[in-house]
Amino acid sequence: MQVKVIFGEENLTEDVPEDYTIKELLKKLEIPSETVVVKKNEAIVIEEELIQEGDTLEIIKVIFGG
């Protein structure tokens, strides 16, 4: 299934399997989950949240190190 991913300036379309979680998506995109807040269809969600067909996921980096 396809989902939309917004990460900073990037707008991506990702193909993910059924029953995929935010955590798995972040891992796939190689984004450390402890540095971001994720919104699914504009609502903040936890890492364990399941992704559904057509979802829009906004990944907001909040920790930059240093």
Binding site: V37, I60, V62, G65, G66
Partner: peptide
């Protein structure tokens, strides 16, 4: 720090989300 980031997004605050170029 993670919870402060979450708070800023949850409370919809206007914050500068960027890393200092010298921090590295």
């Amino acid at each position: 720090e993670k919870e402060i980031g979450l708070y800023a997004i949850a409370a919809d605050l206007n914050v500068h989300l960027a890393g200092c170029p010298y921090a590295g």
